[in-house]
């Protein structure tokens, strides 16, 4: 199987087979991060631009590390230090960056649909690193990868997602990924943050934390944005925490081998108690480790597809393609150092 998407904009629209393909690809990449020399030449000579219009520690460094471990050149641009401050539009920024011929553009943006706008320019593959309250597809992949690692096949598992579902791109992407892979999804939160439309996605809704957690295999806590309080989605952080904070007591409702995920950054004592976050059931840091593998997989799949598509054009332009020629038959074995062309190693 090959991955035929030109852009990676969301989980929506991906088939079960495509999801599994990306996950399997990510799993085979994970080993690279365990090596002493954490680098393979797979994307050598390619430039990845991380364009971040929102502050981010995890996602941005994860994409950057993923690119670098594949030997791509990673450039980070954040809105606060770019021409955005001079009033340049997103489209113009993107047009200019694309003119520098990156292999992929990774975008984090506060507006839902911003990566779709760039994808319409269609000048290079666009990877959604979180758009507004819409999707955060690589986060869902790393979450699913982590659940698979601990619980095996996702099919038939029950996963609770707790917190501000309404405003969460992590929740949207996860509901789609988990239901596509055959999991039962329960959404838990106050009714103000739990839009009824999600029932159409096959998810159950619960406003009682303990009832919602009964018998679940995995619990995914969401970050509660403190500013939601000022817009009256709940009266106070204290009252929210009293009902929806994941405590040791609430955890007892779940299956004995339950795992706990959180996309970070955590509000300790608001949505999650520190004893739970740092406890034996927490897989929160494994998520972060898996995040690098997932992003390596996505960067790899998108930028090598691109190469396939543009190779003829490169030949026409008289560019050297011989060097890349041998890894064009890219299949999941390519990132294994030993199958790479000899001259690429160690350069």
């Amino acid at each position: 199987m090959t991955f035929s998407q030109r852009h990676f904009l969301g989980i929506e629209g991906l088939s079960r087979d495509e999801l599994l393909f990306v996950l399997n690809t990510a799993e085979s990449f994970r080993e690279i991060s365990e090596r002493e020399v954490k680098k393979v030449p797979t994307l050598r000579g390619k430039t990845i631009i991380n364009l971040f219009y929102e502050s981010s520690t995890r996602t941005r460094s994860s994409f950057e590390i993923a690119a670098k471990r594949l030997s791509a050149d990673a450039i980070n641009i954040s809105a606060s230090t770019s021409s955005v401050n001079k009033g340049e539009t997103l489209m113009d920024t993107a047009r200019n960056l694309c003119a520098m011929r990156p292999a992929a553009l990774v975008l984090r943006h506060p507006a839902s649909g911003a990566p779709h706008l760039l994808a319409r320019l269609n000048q290079c593959p666009v990877i959604n690193a979180g758009d507004g309250t819409h999707e955060h597809p690589t986060q869902a992949l790393l979450d699913v990868m982590t659940i698979r690692e601990h619980l095996g096949d996702i099919h038939g598992k029950t996963v609770a997602i707790v917190g501000d579902i309404l405003h969460s791109r992590v929740a949207r992407s996860n509901i789609l990924a988990l239901t596509t892979l055959g999991a039962q999804v329960r959404l838990i939160g106050p009714p103000t943050l739990l839009p009824p439309e999600f029932s159409r996605w096959g998810a159950e809704r619960h406003t009682d934390l303990r009832a919602g957690l009964a018998g679940v295999d995995a619990i995914m806590m969401l970050r509660l944005q403190r500013e939601r309080q000022t817009r009256n989605f709940f009266p106070s952080l204290d009252e929210y925490a009293r009902r929806f904070c994941l405590t040791v007591e609430a955890l007892r409702e779940a299956k004995p081998n339950v795992i706990i995920l959180h996309p970070g950054p955590m509000n300790r004592g608001v949505e999650i108690d520190s004893r739970v976050a740092d406890g034996p059931y927490s897989v929160i840091l494994e998520q972060v480790t898996n995040g690098v593998a997932v992003r390596m997989a996505v960067l790899y799949l998108l930028t090598t597809q691109e190469r396939l598509a543009t190779r003829d054009q490169s030949v026409a332009n008289g560019q050297a393609v011989g060097q890349e020629g041998s890894d064009v038959q890219a299949e999941p074995s390519v990132w294994d150092e030993h199958t790479l062309p000899k001259r690429a190693v160690g350069q």
Partner: peptide, 18 residues
């Protein structure tokens, strides 16, 4: 309407638009 930019319904929830 609270600053929304499309109808509140199944599509807005899916697209993540207020």
């Amino acid at each position: 309407s609270s600053g929304g930019s499309m109808n509140e319904g199944p599509t807005s929830v899916r697209l993540g638009i207020r």
